[in-house]
C-alpha cells in the first residue's frame, strides 16, 4: 500500500501522536483504531502492535477488537472501499442486482480487492438511508436510489 508511511519511525510516531491526541486509555481504543486506519488505509499488524504498546494493553485484545467491528480491516484494502447494503429494504429494491453489476464492473467478488488496488467490495450493515434504497457507501460517501445503470457512472468518479 502506497499510503503506508515509508519507514517504521514514521509508523511509531504517527501512532504515538494519535494515541496522545485521544489519551492513553483503553477506552479510547475504537477512536484510536479509527484514526490509525485513516492513516494507513487498514490496520496492519505492526500498527496494532504499536497501539498495544502505547496503551499497554494485550495485543490479543487489540486484535480481538479490530476484527470485531466491520468498519475496521486488518487486511489491506483498496484505495476506495465500496460497501453495499443488502439488508431487507435494499434487498427488496434490488441490492442483489447492484452487487452483480459491481462485481462484474470491477471483476471481483464480494470481499475482494481489484488487482490494481483501487477498489475493495464489501457488505455493510444498514446505512440508515433506507428511504432511498438501494444504497451503497464509497469511503464516506453514500449513494442512494440506485439502479444498475448508475453504477458505471459512479465508479468512473473514482477510477
Amino acid at each position: 500500500m502506497d499510503v503506508m508511511p515509508a519507514s517504521l519511525d514514521s509508523l511509531e510516531s504517527t501512532i504515538k501522536e494519535i494515541v496522545a491526541r485521544h489519551g492513553r486509555s483503553e477506552h479510547e481504543l475504537l477512536a484510536i483504531l479509527d484514526d490509525v486506519q485513516r492513516a494507513f488505509g487498514y490496520l496492519p499488524e505492526n500498527a496494532l502492535i504499536e497501539v498495544a504498546r502505547n496503551l499497554d494493553m494485550p495485543l490479543g485484545k487489540v486484535y480481538g477488537v479490530a476484527t470485531f467491528y466491520t468498519l475496521f480491516s486488518v487486511e489491506p484494502v483498496g484505495e476506495h472501499v465500496i460497501r453495499v447494503c443488502e439488508n431487507a429494504p435494499c434487498h427488496l429494491l434490488g441490492a442483489d442486482t447492484l452487487i452483480d453489476v459491481l462485481s462484474q464492473e470491477l471483476g471481483i467478488p464480494m470481499g475482494g480487492t481489484t488487482s490494481c488496488g483501487k477498489f475493495t467490495l464489501k457488505h455493510t450493515s444498514c446505512l440508515g438511508v433506507c428511504g432511498v434504497a438501494p444504497a451503497i457507501m464509497i469511503d464516506d460517501e453514500v449513494y442512494g436510489n440506485l439502479t444498475p445503470d448508475d453504477i458505471p457512472v459512479i465508479l468512473e468518479k473514482y477510477r
Partner: peptide, 9 residues
Amino acid sequence: AAVLWPVGR
C-alpha cells in the same frame, strides 16, 4: 498473559 482472545465475529 492474555494470549488467547476471541477473534472475529
